[in-house]
Every structure is written in C-alpha cells, then in structure tokens.
C-alpha cells in the first residue's frame, strides 16, 4: 500500500514533534519533581539548554576515540530510526513489522551495551557489566512478550493491532511490556549502570562535551520509544483505528513519562543488587498468569 498524503503528513509531523518534545518531556519530569518538593524547578526548556550547552563545549580527546564515536553515533541513529520505524509501521501496513521492530531494538540495546566497553574505563566497564545482567533478564522477556503478542493476536503487523479483540491474556501481556519499558528506561532501581554516586556515572564517565550531548539526546529518544510501545499495544484494541491509536498514544506519552518519574521517586530507596532477581520473579508470575488466562479464555 502506498502512503497517502494524510498518512505521510501524520508520520512526518509525529516524528518531528516527538524528536523535538522528548527533551521537553524530561524537563516536565524535573518540573513535576520540583513541584513535589514545593520548589520552582528548572525552566521547561532546561534539558534542551543542557544539550545545547554540551554541544558548545570543547571536544576532549578520549581513549579509543574511533570506536567510541562510531558506536555513539550508531546508537543515536538507531534510536531515531527505531522510533521512526515504529510510527511508520503503525500507520502503514508493513510485512512482519513487529519482528523488524524486535530486531531494531536488539541492535539498539546491543550498541548501548558495547559503547561503555570500548571506552576502556574501569568504572564504565563495571556499569556495562551491570547493564548486561539487566538486559539478559529484561530484553529476553521483551522478546518472549512480543512473541506471545504475535501468538495471541495472530498478527505480525503493528498496524493491525487496533482490529483485534482484547483478551485478559493480552492485557497482562501489555502490563509486562509496561514493566519492560520502565526497566529499559533505566529508572530507579534499574539505574545501576549509571549509578551516579557509586561508580561516577559508570557508562557515561568517559563521555564529555558534544559526545555526552549526543548520548543524552539518544537516551531520551530511546526512553520515548520504550514508553510508546506498551502504550500503543494497550490502547490499540480499544480505539479501532491505527491513526486514533497513534494520536492517543502520543497524548498519553507525557502522562506516562510523569507516572514513571513518580514511580522512580517511590523506588528511590529500593535495593539495586536484588533488582534483577526480583524482576525475574515478577516476570515469571506475570507470564504464568498470561498463559493460564490464554488457556482458560481460549
């Protein structure tokens, strides 16, 4: 099917708006946290100011610069490409789009893990090792959840999800994707890769100036992607149209961003060392419920 003008306009405007508002969503999160503290907080464009400032700083020579710059720009390109592909695949029927999205996210996550390893900094390597452990639990669950999504819905098109009938098993699956999204965003207690006070920002420690700016922006885009996927999966069967589903998801995105920020504040004092194990237990329970519900309501 060829793109008509409305879809093309919607795809372009959605992607452009998303890429612009993602740092603003981070600022809104900081503003909400400030409101909880009864303080004024930073301006609404503060994260944009931070990124712009980082690009104005002098670029320092870092160890292994060729590999670092290569993986960093690959990470940024993949973040933007994944979110672009997701929005396009929602609006335009694309063959096996769910599987292509899984592959894109796998490459994106692998690049994210490899990047700190090539900086050769001991703190970065500690952070990267922790991230590997977390990814082993979280990403595998993401793959299984997406595979079950295809199995339950019988669809490999993202754009066909609005036309399926939501079952209880499907809704539990969407809940699993919400948890996967929360963990992939690197919020407390799953920020063990950065672990700011403990290992001096871990994976970020060698990045400086414009390189840090690229990483911060790419990370925010990745966060937006991992929020959009579960929202779309949950909302789609209730809207009946992929266009409405996408617009509703984009409206819910800032609300979910703030909810995740609130949850992160609640989990601020939880134990980081047992986080992956607790996560595995939680996923096991939810998967068991999903499969039981599927067999019962089959």
């Amino acid at each position: 099917m060829s793109l008509d003008f409305i879809n093309a306009g919607l795809v372009l405007s959605s992607i452009t708006t998303l890429l612009f508002i993602v740092p603003i969503l981070d600022s809104i999160e900081r503003k909400v946290k400030a409101a909880i503290h009864s303080r004024i907080g930073p301006p609404i464009l503060q994260t944009w100011y931070d990124i712009r400032k980082l690009f104005a700083k002098k670029l320092s020579v870092i160890p292994n610069p060729f590999h670092v710059v290569f993986f960093l720009f690959l990470y940024m390109m993949l973040s933007i490409m994944s979110i672009t592909y997701f929005i396009t695949a929602v609006l335009v029927p694309m063959w096996n789009s769910i599987m292509v999205l899984i592959i894109l996210i796998t490459i994106l996550q692998t690049t994210f893990i490899v990047l700190p390893f090539v900086t050769s900094n001991p703190f970065a390597i500690i952070g990267a090792t922790r991230e590997v452990l977390l990814v082993l639990v979280n990403e595998i669950v993401f793959f299984i959840a997406m595979a079950l999504l295809i199995f339950f819905s019988g669809e490999t098109y993202l754009s066909s999800l609005p036309y399926i009938h939501p079952t209880p098993a499907y809704l539990i699956l969407a809940a699993i994707l919400f948890i996967v999204g929360y963990v992939s965003c690197g919020r407390q207690p799953f920020d063990i890769a950065e672990a700011e006070p403990e290992i001096a920002s871990g994976i970020l420690v060698e990045l400086t100036g414009p390189l840090l700016g690229v990483f911060v922006y790419a990370n925010l885009v990745r966060r937006a992607l991992f929020k959009l996927i579960p929202v779309y999966v949950l909302i789609a069967p209730f809207t009946g149209s992929n266009m409405y589903a996408l617009i509703t998801s984009l409206i819910i995105l800032p609300i979910l961003w703030v909810i995740y920020a609130g949850l992160a504040a609640l989990f601020g004092r939880s134990r980081v060392d047992i986080a992956p194990v607790s996560l595995l237990k939680l996923y096991s329970i939810l998967f068991s419920i999903t499969i039981i519900l599927y067999l019962v309501f089959k």
Binding site: I40, G41, P197, L204
Partner: peptide
C-alpha cells in the same frame, strides 16, 4: 537541597569533572 532550589538557575551536581562546567 530543595530548600534553596539551585536547579531553577540551571545548576546540576555531576559526579565526574568531565561533565562539569
């Protein structure tokens, strides 16, 4: 601390001098 709210001036505490201004 939140009482003085340095963040409203764009101030952020970082843990590596490589990130600092």
């Amino acid at each position: 601390t939140p009482y003085f709210d340095a963040e409203r001036l764009g101030v952020k505490l970082v843990v590596s001098p490589r990130h600092a201004d």
